[in-house]
Design a protein around this nucleic acid. Structure first.
Lengths: 343, 343
DNA sequence: TCATATTAGACAACCGATTGTGTAAAGAAA
DNA sequence: TTTCTTTACACAATCGGTTGTCTAATATGA
């Protein structure tokens, strides 16, 4: 096998008897290079199979056109949709995307943040690890004018971009929907002690909706879970159904939990939605396929990714201090399906 | 806001009155540097918040410790699991992962391959786009000793690493299972004209299992789909159920199709599995949750990712020509659930 | 005609880590 | 004491694209 050397602008320069700087400028249509030369250079570059070395460009210009993504995992549907959105927006502006998974570990997140910085990414999009309480490892980005956008699971107190939905409002809307369907005893699952305020916000919305409709808030109808898994959902629902006065509705802050609720109800002979109406969150693919279909809150995951990426790309062009605290809210919608449609 | 400059080895050198080369060597425990100096350098580096610039290192050494992933989309469960596996293996060896989505477009794939090359990735893991027929855009990797691993959707004729399952055997096993459950008229869905041989292989396994058990292969029980979507599955199944002699079993080469089959059957009052047994493929999360649970072929997606990443990392250490055609087969298993369990 | 503007392109420094080569000093072996 | 080895570190080239500065030539305007 021949040992190919990467073709460089110097190779092109030599072949055409021009200076390397001229090649560099010609390739990006610099005004000081004649059309004739530009055409010739581009033609030769193509023939020789020239591919620019982004490392060299990045080193020199300190611009890598790379967006770093730091998220708990790529397998969660919401997050893979988020990636997809980021990726599409990035591709449009000729940015690359580099992805790292914290697996919800704080230490991993710290290490990976360093690795992203080491790679001199142009910007970072992050959804925090469950474990994360301290966010000082993100200072390296802020301190070096690397735009940082938090998405979905965002820190309370960090002064940077955020792209989120209004979780309070979404929780309120979901609960209100159940009330409108005639539910009187609405249960709620939530996450135990969370740093990001996402589940707390949903819970606040739930509570306010109840209060607003003169429905008492009952502690035994609110269950805090350590993990938002199918199994945890089944366990919690059984606990709910074992109550003397079992609930007739449930707002689950995730579709997997809603699925577990629907199936647990079915197993116990409880009719969904007539005896027990359920609404989930996220509009995961499964919510649409399971029977009965599950009502849910749509979460524009791809759009969020797109918005986050665009914030970074836009921000790189014109850094304005006053932008720094910008929060982008994206709309949620109640998607009514069979699991909660009683009327 | 202060304009921080990135801390470099030169900054450390200046502070300690040492040469930059000494700093560089000290940081990687080079034997020619005294322990005392090493300790001092590392200490100071930490204090000053030094983070190595991987661009500079990559440019100089032509090694980036980055694995490029080029796949149709990240949102498909199989592929996001694959990524997860790659990522875990990469992290272990201190590699970064850079992901690009072809969205099943050939042109995108060509462009993104170039972009990966431009980023001087150390290796590439690829699952081909549906559209791809020609694979010459991968030559740039092979020609430059950049290890290339195809996963799952692999080209027939490209001389490089592959990590795949034995699709023929999996198809055979799935079909045999249905036969053992007493099915006499087993239908099969497949993809229309595919470049990668994955669906064709599964079909071959299906056919051979039938032949081996003296069951006639009937063309009207084999339907080729353009897209492997839920809707396409529903349509195909309705077509099957409309036959004079409808099938009593189905081997679907994907779980989404299996789900659509089960639900279509239920809608038409056909009992699953008694009148119609179904087996899918991939063990997507949904197969476990839907009712009835769907029997499926487990596909070790994360393991495949891990294997692919390890091939690259290992190969980078010792490039041997004779390795070049290595094919890694990973095991599949028949996972029997309710949708096909008759006896 | 002279001064200014524009066009064309060369030269060289630069980004930051790496590494081959060189040198000086201290210790070990002869 | 001399030679060899080891230790400890400095110097400078290198990777490849970018960009400020400079020279020269042609074109435009006063």
């Amino acid at each position: 096998m021949e040992e190919h050397r990467h073709v460089t602008i110097y190779d092109i320069a030599e072949k055409l008897n021009l200076a390397a700087s001229t090649i560099s400028r010609a390739l990006k249509d610099h005004h000081s290079i004649s059309d004739k030369t530009i055409k010739k250079v581009k033609q030769t570059a193509k023939e020789m199979g020239f591919v620019p070395n982004t490392l060299a460009a990045g080193l020199r210009g300190n611009v890598t056109k790379t967006i770093g993504i730091l998220i708990p995992t790529v397998t969660q549907p919401f997050l893979s949709s988020l990636i997809s959105g980021i990726e599409i927006a990035a591709q449009k502006s000729d940015y690359s995307v580099i992805i790292m998974q914290s697996h919800d570990s704080y230490q991993m997140e710290v290490d990976l943040a360093k690795s992203l910085y080491s790679n001199r990414v142009s910007g970072v999009i992050c959804s925090l690890a469950m474990e994360t309480r301290d966010t000082s490892h993100f200072k390296q980005f802020s301190n070096n004018n690397i735009p940082l956008v938090f998405v979905d699971r965002v820190p309370k107190d960090y002064d940077t971009f955020r792209v989120v939905i209004n979780n309070y409002l979404a929780g309120y809307k979901a609960t209100k929907h159940l009330i409108e369907q005639g539910c009187k005893r609405i249960a709620h699952l939530t996450a135990v002690s969370e740093f990001g305020n996402l589940y707390n916000e949903r819970k606040r919305g739930y509570i306010d909706a109840l209060i607003e409709h003169d429905i008492p808030v009952q502690d035994n109808l609110i269950i805090s879970l350590k993990e938002m898994t199918y199994e945890a959902g089944v366990k919690a629902c059984n606990q709910l159904f074992d109550l003397k006065t079992a609930p007739d509705g449930l707002f689950a802050p995730g579709d997997i939990l809603a699925v577990s609720a629907v199936q647990t109800a079915k197993k116990r002979g409880i009719k969904v939605p007539d005896q027990f109406a359920v609404i989930g969150f996220n509009n995961d693919p499964i919510s649409e396929i399971i029977e009965p279909n599950i009502s849910t809150i749509t979460h524009p995951a791809e759009k969020m990714g797109k918005a986050a990426a665009e914030l970074i790309i836009k921000n790189l062009k014109s850094v304005k201090e006053e932008d720094a605290k910008e929060i982008t809210f994206l709309n949620t919608q109640v998607l009514i399906r069979e699991s909660s449609r009683k009327i």
